[in-house]
Structure formats: structure tokens, C-alpha cells
Design a protein around this nucleic acid. Structure first.
Length: 820
DNA sequence: TAGGTGATTGTTTTT
DNA sequence: CAATCACCTA
């Protein structure tokens, strides 16, 4: 959707123009998919500025960082020099809290705890309260606490509502855990994701002065994706729109897909009651998709009962029918899609970046990734194992966190013995206990280990050394801040040389700090000894983190505040999966349906349209029609991302947790207007040499069973039996335990998995000289085999890049080439 | 104390 | 199949 800013307002529809031109007072824009909502918002902001509103009086909230960045750029390019602040709710709240958090007990350098940090913290709390973590899974407790926070329930109020004897057993436990959890967060000068919103909501609620000040300051507020705001976000927006009710909410109830994390679709539905003076505008013309795609989207969403009916119309030219394909299994599905994409690109019809593949759960990306890699198709994956959550990245970030916020006990415990310094579990236990009893922070306790009873001498020495190390880093940070161009004594020769080779670019604050940490802790050398895949991946992640730091340094040095540790850590904490996506990159995009919101692609595949995935098993459990409707909306969002071509797929069998299970078609299948194609009779090649022209176009063999299967059966009467999942698992489990099989190395673990119910497959039996293929490194030759049994190790020389790698046979993703 | 092993466990989606 | 965890040994 390219905006042509040169054209004034005559490229807008009447409805769009009305939204752009509306000046003061509340405005609700109900925007169907592809109706030019983003363009309306940017235009509107520009128009406000034209009318004399100061850029800093405008607050624009988007759903993603990426959208925020793009929106700021668009406004900038429309009205050069007008910098407006666009951000996500979480980022906005974080900024408020850095400035005004004292009232809720936060210092400006507070840490933001991610899910992993929360888990650690809740485990400590359970430990301290003598609860058994195995009986009260931390994840469940955290979920409850999160729900409570989303409802703005403080620990006290939660206890009042759900305390002993009032709620369920679990709730009673949460009522005990939650207060201490919250106390520990504040003691660590930290917040979790929910707190960012909750603290601000409470701040605004309790502090009229602050509320009025900010209300006046943000005269015009625009909130996108309003259908996905939760109670806290609602309250924040409402609090800032009292004196100046110039609130513009945009969104689409049919695209509300975050109910599970507290989003309230009602917020948008009742906007008109909340702001009686509201001007409401509906954008119903779709400029994105073909009529075929729109028709199937409309047919699907029409099955939602709790919904305001809406027209979806387009003047776009007719295109291909929407396809519903059946494959045999996930492998075939992935290979089939990969082959088709490759063929279309090679025929010159499409570019790689025209394609996107969506799936319901992240785990479905793996098969796709492997197939794409094998067929040498460039692709990018949104999310998956997020970069900032990788172990080595988190370790290094934890050093930074501890430097920034010495009270951050989670960060302390993470790095105090990383890399190992001989500070063991029991020493830390003693340290922690003493610190708690004296009210000392862990880092301060480590500075005076002599005070801690029963601490082994070695541990005491090491703790003191660790504390001085952190002090060193802190000095470095302060020093750098004051004189960023000083020569760094902590940098070793290599770094200095590297620097001078790169010219005179001064190393920025964060990069300098990271390099110092790496150098002084020897962190990276843990991985430099090994030459295995994992170690290499870790090293490259470290590299990537340093690059990210450098990028941040460079970008921020242009701003008034310059780079700060807080800023960098915040960027890392609030990073989103899709931030890293790059439209310009010539690659196919893989992502979850949730991540797809707000995006568009010429060709879209949605895979695994199967019962228990779409709709997801967990949304069927409680037999709650509202949850089912959210699943339907999720599929609706996916479908409406497609511009020209849409292919939905499902399979007969699907691998889950290493088991192959037969699938049930999605209930939504019958609600869609699609052309069905059967690809199960087709032999998709698996290990073929892809230099040959063995490509098999499935379409030529496929049977067009029927077109337009549009049943009108209501879906809600046919909930599936979910239980057979676990039953099947138990049944097959026993057959795997064939005694001695693995020890004799008759076969690999992977082959065993594949051949469970039928005959055990032949062993892979790699031998020297054999041609093999690796999903990432490509073709290679086995040059050495050593070790026995499960230690059996292969060394492979790859054709590309002079690469030589070793793998443990039972674990490596190598495939023999030329075997069937 | 560290590192490895075996066993058990789980599990949507994300800030 | 992972990731995590409790336990075991050097």
C-alpha cells in the first residue's frame, strides 16, 4: 500500500477523508482489513500538524514497534521536520515510569523482567513460602497473576477476592504468592510486562496532578488496534482524555485476537457509549485483496455470532480461486509449498518477497525451515526462539542489567557464576539468606563476603572478585558517559587494532561495555574451544548482540540524550518478533498468524488448517464459544493478509511431539469458500538432488475433487474429542522401548521415531566418502567417522565455504544424498 | 562444585 | 521433540 503524498486529499475516499479532516473531539474509525487505515492515521496526524497542533502534543500508539517506526517515518516524510512520538503502549508506559515511577516505588533505572525472569522470581517466591514448585507450576501461577494485573487487581484486592476459603485452591495459593512476588519485583527495582501498564494506570488514577499534566500535554491521542487494548490500557487512554477528549481510536472488532492476554473487544464496541460526542466512521472498502479472497474471509467471519455485521467490498479485479489443499503429512506440505514458490519465482512470475507462510503455532515453522533450506529458498522467520531470549544473549544482557540496576537479583544470580567461577549452589544459598536477613542487595553482600556465615573461603574470594568486576564495568560506563572518546584501558590490543582498522568511528557506550564484559569475563571462550554447531551458533549470536549494540549506539548518538544503558536494555526487553522483518529483503516470510496482523503479502499460504490447531485445542477445551470466535478471527486475519493468491493447506497426518497422528479437518473448513485439491497421491521427492530438474508440479497430478464446498452446518455442535491426543501417546510409548536397540546402534533416534509402528527402518549408517546434505550448510562429504554407539561422530566437509564440521550421528540433521 | 545423564515433563498465540 | 530437572559421579 504505497502512499502518494504528492497528491493532496483527492486520493482518499469520502470516508477516509472524513477521518483525516475530523479535528477535535473523540473519533472512532472502524476499519475493515485493507481499508487504508494506516494511511488514514498518518494523514490525520499530518493534517493535525498542518492545523497548528504541535507535534509533541500528539501521542500515537501502535501495536508494534515496527508500525511505530514506519508511522513516524511517514509523517516525517510528509511534513519534514515534524518529529512525533509514536510508540507501543509498553514503551510509552516505560518512559512515563522512568520519569515518574518514584510514586509507585521505582527508580529510573528499573529492570524489565521477561517471562524467563518472572519464572525465576516466582520459583524463589515458592521456595521462600515453602510451596512445592512441582505441585504449583510457575507458569500457571504467573498466568493467574498476569490475568489479575490485566484486571488491575492489586495483590491486596486479589487476596480479598480470592483468599483462603473464597476461591479455588489454586486461587488461594495465588493470593499468597502474588503479594510476595510483587514485593520482590519492587525490591529488585524491576517490573514485569504487565506492570509497565498497571503502574502507569495506577499512577494516573491516584495522582490527579500528574494525570492533568499529561492529559494537557497529550492533546491528541491516536490508538491503533483499539480492539486489542486491555483494561489497563483502556484506563490509561481514558485518563489522558478527560480534559482533552481528542481521542482517535482505530481498529476492527473482527481482528481482535489477543483476548487470551486480557484484551477486551468490548473496549472498541462500547467506545460510542464512553464518548457520546464521538464521530464514528466506517471504512469498508477493501483495496488489498481479490474478491475471491474477500469472499472467503467474509463467509468465515459471518459465522461469528457476537459481532456487528459489516460489509466487505472491493473494486479489485477478480483473481484465482482460493485453494484448500490436502497433503499427506507436514513434510509433503512443506516441500510442496517450497517447490511451488521456487517454480513461480523461476518462471519469473513472482519474487521471493511476495510470499508469506502463516501457521498457528511456532513449532510448525521447523518443517518449513528445513524444506526451504534444502531447496535453497531464502526465507526469514518472525520470532521462533527469539534472539534476545537465547541463553548467551540473556547472559550478556544480564551483566548489563546488573551494571545498570545493582538491585536486580535475577540478573545477579544469572551471571554470578557465568562463566563458572567456583561459586556453587550452596554458597549462593548462604549469600542469599544472609542478604535477605540483613536487607542487603546481593551485589553488596558479595562485596563483603566475610560477613556471610559458613561461606567457604574460595567462594568468598570469588564473590568479592565478581563484585569488583561489576564495579569496574560500572566505572567504565560512567567514564564513557563523561568522555566517550577516551582511549579504553580495558580494551585489549586486538580490539584496539580492530578499531583502528575500521577507521576512526568511536566505539559507542554499549558496544564498549559489551566488549569489556566479553574480554574480562572470558565469556566467549566457553564456546571457542568447541567446534560444534551449537558453539558456533552461540558465538555468532554474541557477534550479533555486539552488532545490535553498535547499531543502537550509532542511532542514538544522533538523538539528544545519546545512547544509554537503560535505553539499550529497554529496546532489548520490548523487542518484538516482527521487528526484525525486512520487506526489502528478498526472502519468503514465515510467521505465526498472530504476528501477521497488520501486514500484507501478494501470496499467502496458511498451513495446518486442522482441528486442534486452527481452532487450537486449548480454545476448544472449555467449550467457550467466545474463544472459538477468537480462533475464527485469527484465521480471518490471516486470510485478509493476502492480496492476490491464497492457499490454505491441511494434512492427513501431522507430527506432534515426535509422534505422527492422524488429523481432523478444521471445523472452519466448511465455512470457507475454496477449491479443494488433493495432493496426497503425489510423490513429493524428499532427498533428491535439487540440481536435477526433478521438480514435480503437484497441480498436474492433482484431482480437483470438488469446487466450492460450502456447507452451512453450524460448527459449534461438533467439538472434537481432544482426549485421543494423550491416549495415543501413551499407547505407542511402550513400543519404543525395544531393549538394546539403541545400544546396538541399529538405527538413529530419528529413524526410530519415524518407524515406530511399522518395521524399524534401516540404519542410516553413514560411512566415509558418503555424500550428505545438511539443512544449513548444504552438500558435503563424510571424511571421518569416529566413536562408538551414541558418541559416534561424523566429520563432514561441505562444498560451500570450505566448511568442515563434526556432528554427533544420533543428533545431526544430516541426510544421505541419493538414498530413498 | 561441575558437568553429564537419564527421566520427566509439557504445549498457543506475546508484551 | 525440546527443555528442564533431579540426581549421580569425578
Amino acid at each position: 500500500m504505497d502512499d502518494d503524498w504528492a497528491v493532496p486529499a483527492d486520493d482518499l475516499t469520502p470516508a477516509q477523508r472524513a477521518a483525516v479532516e475530523h479535528f477535535e473531539g473523540p473519533l472512532l474509525v472502524l476499519a475493515g482489513p485493507g481499508s487504508g487505515k494506516t494511511r488514514v492515521i498518518t494523514r490525520r496526524i499530518a493534517r493535525l500538524i498542518e492545523r497548528g497542533v504541535r507535534p509533541w502534543e500528539i501521542l500515537a500508539i501502535t501495536f508494534t514497534n515496527k508500525a511505530a517506526r514506519e508511522m513516524a517515518e511517514r509523517v516525517q516524510s510528509l511534513l519534514p521536520g515534524s518529529r512525533i512520538w509514536v510508540s507501543t503502549f509498553h514503551r510509552f508506559c516505560s518512559r512515563i515510569l522512568r520519569e515518574r515511577g518514584a510514586a509507585v516505588g521505582l527508580q529510573p533505572n528499573f529492570s524489565i523482567f521477561d517471562t524467563g525472569d518472572q519464572q525465576q522470581l516466582i520459583k524463589q517466591v515458592l521456595h521462600d513460602l515453602d510451596f512445592d514448585a512441582s505441585h504449583f507450576p510457575p507458569g500457571k501461577l504467573l498466568h493467574r497473576i498476569s490475568q489479575a494485573k490485566n484486571e488491575l487487581l492489586t495483590p491486596e484486592n486479589y487476596a480479598l477476592r480470592y483468599g483462603e476459603g473464597i476461591g479455588t485452591h489454586l486461587e488461594a495459593v495465588v493470593a499468597k504468592i502474588y503479594p510476595l512476588y510483587q514485593k520482590r519485583l519492587l525490591e529488585a527495582n524491576a517490573v514485569d510486562f504487565d506492570d509497565l501498564l498497571v503502574h502507569v494506570a495506577i499512577l494516573l488514577n491516584d495522582n490527579d496532578g500528574l494525570r492533568n499534566e499529561l492529559d494537557e500535554r497529550y492533546r491528541f491521542i491516536l490508538v491503533d488496534e483499539y480492539q486489542d487494548t486491555n483494561k489497563a490500557q483502556y484506563q490509561i487512554v481514558a485518563a489522558l482524555s478527560q480534559i482533552q477528549p481528542n481521542l482517535c481510536a482505530t481498529g476492527d472488532p473482527d481482528q481482535s485476537i489477543y483476548g487470551w492476554r486480557g484484551a477486551r473487544i468490548e473496549n472498541i464496541l462500547r467506545f460510542e457509549q464512553d464518548f457520546p460526542e464521538v464521530k464514528s466512521i466506517r471504512l469498508e472498502d477493501n483495496f488489498r485483496s481479490t474478491p475471491e479472497i474477500l469472499k472467503t474471509a467474509d463467509a468465515l467471519i459471518a459465522n461469528n455470532i457476537h459481532r456487528k455485521a459489516k460489509r466487505l467490498q472491493t473494486g479489485n479485479a477478480s483473481g484465482e480461486p482460493v485453494e484448500m489443499r490436502l497433503y499427506r503429512d507436514g513434510q509433503d506440505e512443506a516441500t510442496g509449498i517450497a517447490n511451488e514458490i521456487r517454480a513461480l519465482v523461476e518462471a519469473g512470475e513472482r519474487q521471493w518477497k511476495d510470499f508469506a507462510v502463516f501457521y498457528r503455532v511456532n513449532s510448525l515453522s521447523r518443517t518449513l525451515e528445513t524444506a526451504f533450506a534444502r531447496l535453497k529458498i531464502p526465507f526469514q522467520v518472525a520470532g521462533g526462539v527469539a534472539f534476545f531470549e537465547r541463553m548467551e544473549v540473556k547472559d550478556l544482557l544480564s551483566y548489563l542489567r546488573l551494571i545498570e540496576n545493582p538491585l536486580d537479583r535475577i540478573a545477579f544470580l544469572r551471571v554470578v557464576n557465568t562463566p563458572t567461577r567456583g561459586i556453587g549452589k550452596s554458597s549462593l544459598e548462604r549469600l542469599t539468606r544472609w542478604a535477605a536477613s540483613t536487607g542487603t542487595s546481593l551485589l553488596d553482600a558479595a562485596r563483603q563476603p566475610g560477613q556471610v556465615p559458613d561461606l567457604p573461603k574460595k567462594a568468598a574470594v570469588q564473590l568479592r572478585a565478581f563484585a569488583s568486576l561489576i564495579d569496574e564495568f560500572t566505572d567504565l560506563m560512567i567514564g564513557s558517559r563523561n568522555s566517550p572518546r577516551d582511549e579504553e584501558s580495558l580494551l585489549d590490543h586486538e580490539d584496539v587494532e580492530e578499531l583502528s582498522e575500521e577507521g576512526h568511528a568511536a566505539v559507542g557506550l554499549i558496544e564498549r561495555l559489551l566488549r569489556a564484559i566479553l574480554q574480562r569475563t572470558g565469556y566467549a571462550s566457553q564456546f571457542t574451544d568447541d567446534r560444534d554447531e551449537v558453539a558456533l551458533a552461540r558465538l555468532s549470536n554474541i557477534e550479533e548482540l555486539v552488532s545490535a549494540a553498535r547499531l543502537y549506539d550509532v542511532q542514538e548518538s544522533a538523538t539528544e540524550g545519546g545512547p544509554t544503558l537503560t535505553g539499550f536494555l529497554e529496546t532489548a526487553s520490548l523487542a518484538q518478533d516482527i521487528d526484525s522483518l525486512d520487506e526489502a529483503t528478498g526472502a519468503v516470510t514465515l510467521m505465526t498468524l498472530h504476528a501477521a496482523k497488520g501486514l500484507e503479502f501478494p501470496v499467502v499460504y496458511i498451513i495446518a488448517v486442522e482441528q486442534n490447531l486452527i481452532p487450537h485445542e486449548r480454545s476448544l477445551r472449555e467449550n467457550d464459544p467466545r474463544q472459538l470466535e477468537e480462533e475464527r478471527r485469527l484465521l480471518f486475519v490471516g486470510i485478509t493478509r493476502a492480496e492476490e493468491k491464497l492457499v490454505l493447506t491441511h494434512t492427513q497426518r501431522r507430527e506432534m511431539h515426535g509422534r505422527s497422528l492422524s488429523t481432523i479437518p478444521s471445523d472452519f473448513m466448511h465455512e470457507l469458500i475454496v477449491t479443494r485439491k488433493d495432493h496426497t497421491g503425489v510423490d513429493e521427492f524428499q532427498f533428491g538432488d535439487d540440481t536435477s530438474s526433478e521438480f514435480h508440479d503437484p497441480d498436474h497430478d492433482s484431482i480437483d475433487q470438488s469446487s466450492d464446498l460450502h456447507h452451512s452446518e453450524p460448527a459449534y455442535e461438533r467439538y472434537p474429542s481432544v482426549s485421543d491426543f494423550s491416549q495415543k501417546r501413551k499407547k505407542t510409548k511402550g513400543s519404543l522401548g525395544i531393549p538394546g536397540l539403541e545400544g546396538l546402534n541399529l538405527t538413529t533416534g530419528a529413524a526410530l521415531q519415524a518407524g515406530t509402528n511399522d518395521a524399524v527402518e534401516l540404519p542410516k549408517g553413514f560411512s566415509v566418502g558418503m555424500q550428505v546434505r545438511h539443512p544449513r550448510y548444504g552438500l558435503g562429504t563424510v571424511v571421518d567417522v569416529s566413536g562408538m554407539s551414541r558418541r559416534r561422530t561424523l566429520t563432514v566437509e561441505f562444498e560451500v565455504g570450505d566448511r568442515r564440521e563434526s556432528f554427533v550421528e544420533s543428533k545431526c540433521p544430516l541426510q544421505p544424498v541419493g538414498l530413498r
